[in-house]
């Protein structure tokens, strides 16, 4: 599989960029909205573009296509939980309304599942950070049972579900904590497919890394534009070698992170689970800290302007640092690499 974007992927990227960037998304984010009125509408738009069903068997879409989408959502700073919705559908389980992925971070204790009566499953535990968790109608949760890992759909209106919106670094996406206290799941709403869960977790880690790369790509472009118009000492600051070299390092990091994400996306085309896990953890362990470095340099090169609330720079910096913590921190992915290297 090639790492170059196909023509279809390039058009997909264009379509998502113009859709996700319509309206001033980052200015809206700076008003620190609750997003309660935004998520369902945003997902309706995504559905019209076919993004939520991208991974459905009859659509022929791939995780590589979804990674292209994820990169554009990060670039736009979009609140839309497109990745979380497409991956929830990928489970094969049905959830009504806003249906999103709610995976426990791999560093945190898993949700536990116990058999109830008549093939029901009873879930107890906590998912600390769920994108659009407070706005969702249904969640796809992973749980550990005595018989192995399972995936289950939890209706957010069900008894025993408590959702607490969190105040986070990220002002571009609403994030909530979800607590499950003896929540009953009907037999039709859960499945014990380890392989599907492994694909979904790896894909989520991939798309979170892609999101950070998208945001970093935009920060690079904004920074290059800024240093070409800002003048000090009678020259544009982009003519100073200290500034140029910072910009070059940003560009190199963004390019290498993009390549790592594309290689990880390509790894989903094979059945080699270890190779896929390795490629995904490489992408996460390189791209997430790399994008955080790019973000830091972006602020530095914007000088005092970059430190103001009115600047878009910190909005993307916040998103990148949040991506850093989601779907496995770089440290967790390094430990997984160590395990895979044997």
């Amino acid at each position: 599989m090639t790492l170059l974007l196909t023509e279809e992927q390039a058009s997909l990227a264009d379509a998502v960029r113009s859709w996700a960037s319509s309206g001033d998304v980052l200015a809206h984010a700076r008003t620190e909205p609750s997003y309660d009125d935004d998520i369902a509408a945003a997902l309706a738009g995504a559905e019209q573009l076919g993004l939520l069903t991208l991974l459905d068997d009859d659509q022929g879409g791939t995780q590589a296509d979804l990674a292209v989408v994820a990169m554009e959502l990060g670039h736009a700073g979009s609140p839309a939980p497109v990745v979380e919705s497409a991956l929830a559908r990928r489970s094969g389980l049905a959830g009504g309304g806003v249906f999103v992925l709610a995976l426990t971070a791999p560093e945190q204790p898993p949700v536990l599942g116990k058999p109830g009566g008549d093939g029901e499953l009873v879930l107890t535990g906590r998912v600390e950070a769920v994108a659009s968790g407070a706005q969702a109608d249904a969640l796809l949760v992973a749980a550990r049972t005595d018989a192995g890992e399972v995936l289950a759909v939890v209706e957010t209106a069900a008894p025993g579900v408590t959702r607490t919106p969190r105040t986070t670094l990220d002002v571009t996406r609403p994030i909530a904590m979800v607590e499950l206290d003896g929540v009953t799941v009907t037999p039709a709403a859960w499945t014990g497919d380890d392989a599907v869960l492994a694909v979904i977790s790896d894909a989520y880690a991939l798309h979170v890394a892609a999101d950070a790369v998208g945001a970093a790509t935009r920060l690079l472009a904004q920074t290059v534009a800024y240093v070409q118009q800002r003048e000090q000492f009678g020259r544009i600051i982009g003519s100073f070698q200290a500034v140029k070299h910072h910009a070059a390092t940003m560009a190199l990091t963004v390019e290498a992170a993009t390549a790592a994400v594309r290689a990880a996306a390509a790894s989903f085309a094979t059945d080699d689970e270890d190779a896929r896990a390795h490629a995904v953890s490489v992408a996460a362990a390189y791209a997430k800290p790399g994008c955080a470095r790019v973000a830091g340099t972006a602020i530095q090169l914007h000088g005092g302007m970059g430190f103001t609330w009115e600047s878009d720079v910190h909005v993307l910096v916040r998103r990148i640092q949040t991506d850093h913590a989601l779907a496995g921190t770089p440290a967790w992915h390094r430990r997984r690499l160590a395990r895979l290297l044997g």
Binding site: T258, A259, R262, A263, A331, R334
Partner: peptide
């Protein structure tokens, strides 16, 4: 030091992807 070594492993593999991407562009 193990963390640093694993960071380097990830970076070396990212470099491998960068080179692969460049090579594909060149062939195209």
């Amino acid at each position: 030091a193990t963390e640093r070594l694993l960071e380097l492993h990830a970076a070396i593999e990212a470099l491998a992807a960068l080179v692969r991407l460049g090579s594909e562009r060149w062939q195209a």
